[in-house]
Amino acid sequence: MLLSDADWEIVRLSLKVSLAGVIVILPFAFMLAWLLARGRFPGKLLLDAAIHLPLVLPPVVIGWLLLLALGPAGPVGALLDRWFGVSVMFRWTGAAIAAAIMALPLMVRAMRLSIEAVDRRVEDAARTLGAGPGWCFLTILLPLSLPGIVTGFILGFARSIGEFGATITFVSNIPGETQTLSLAIYSALQVPGSDAAVWRLALVSVALSLGALVASEALSQRQRAGRSGHVL
């Protein structure tokens, strides 16, 4: 099976949108995961629920909310325009934002589990050895929760590659700018006689998603084996 140049363009754009979104959101996802795993503050349950909204809300609602917030008249959109003169409307950057928001809950979940699995008593040991809070975070918590960060990254990537509803609502379906894999498949389905294109793109998305899931499962198995190894 050979992909046409136009197909490659779509795949390239999809990877760009997903990777950019997931990479930019990664530090925020980790911060939120850390807050949920370690923090004690009023409204924690509410924050937890709000982070999970993209998992349960219709994606079209998320897209509409993004439109309200980031559109030219929206509070964030107006500031972006005034300060930086940029707009994410109908741009691939907008598609990346939609992909990142939809991926956020899965990323936070994976990282939170990993942070919760870190033995705080090991961090106490580091503190008695002279490590301040920041150093302890960098040298103990971060490396020990790395498997969760990687898993969260892969799951977030897999989720965002398949993003459809929020993207098409927020930034529309513009070939070469916001038309990612799912949107291209949808467009091709509207055109009679383009079955071959649908097949090619569908197979690409199956391959990408399957690859990501297999990678994440392999990692979490390695993590489990590793953990039972150091009981001490």
Partner: peptide, 14 residues
């Protein structure tokens, strides 16, 4: 703790 300069040996080596 990190300014106390006390070595702590725990029951489980940690």
């Amino acid at each position: 703790p990190h300014r106390r300069r006390l070595g702590y040996v725990f029951q489980d080596a940690r």
